[in-house]
Amino acid sequence: MLEARLEQSSVLKKVVDAIKDLVQDCNFDCNDSGIQLQAMDNSHVALVAMHLKTEGFALYRCDRNIALGINLVSLQKVLRAAQNEDVMTLKAEDSPDALSLVFENSENDRISEYDLKLMDIDQEHLGIPETEYGATVKMPSAEFQRICRDLSLLSESVAIEATKEGIKFSCTGDIGKGAVTLRQNPNVEKPELGTTIELQEPVALTFSLKYLVNFCKASGLSNTVTISLSNEVPLLIEYEMEHGYVRFYLAPKIGD
């Protein structure tokens, strides 16, 4: 059986908010490393991988691996009843047909109990190879979100080039073209506001802006975002949390 308690309901609320527009039905795999999720969007262009590690839970007990088949829209309806500061306890039996969610407010004078019906979702699991990326860029998540939104008004695709000068996002569309170049700027006082680039080799790839704008919904999870690129492999966009992460992989657009 599973029993997992989060001090702050906002952790799960924010994660579900970040991925609910990309995937609809997915398995929350509960095991002794915590709660994990991996799912592709319907068109198989993007993959999201999430991990809430055991250390992030005030209490975590999972006797055997449990897959919780959940419709994220339904889960979000239940999570709306939780205040961000409520303590949230998730409970499920082995091979469960429902997930119990209990929200307790900090004054301890309101306790809310919900049961969410579970689904049978047979989703194949994909192997994500460890990759030495050609370029790894760490930057403010708000900055990345602004760039993706601005360029998505001009074009459907963005070319991302990482060189030792910096990282350049450029696009061309019917109304014209645009480009944003960020230079390495560590910002020693406030590292989370800086941009750092680790370059093993120059990289140039093209991606769909619609997906990048979608991924940026996760910006509330972290002040910074890490973008990892290598030629000919999917882009990795990672939002780190204190005890876990949400990662998005996006397949590139390939020129003939």
């Binding site: 068109s43 198989h44 262009v45 994909l126 192997g127 695709s157 999917p234 397949a251 020129g255 003939d256």
Partner: peptide, 14 residues
């Protein structure tokens, strides 16, 4: 002309 590639061609099913 660029065309979109797909995740399963990079990550194989376990």
């Amino acid at each position: 002309e660029v065309r979109q590639s797909y995740i399963p061609s990079f990550f194989n099913t376990l």
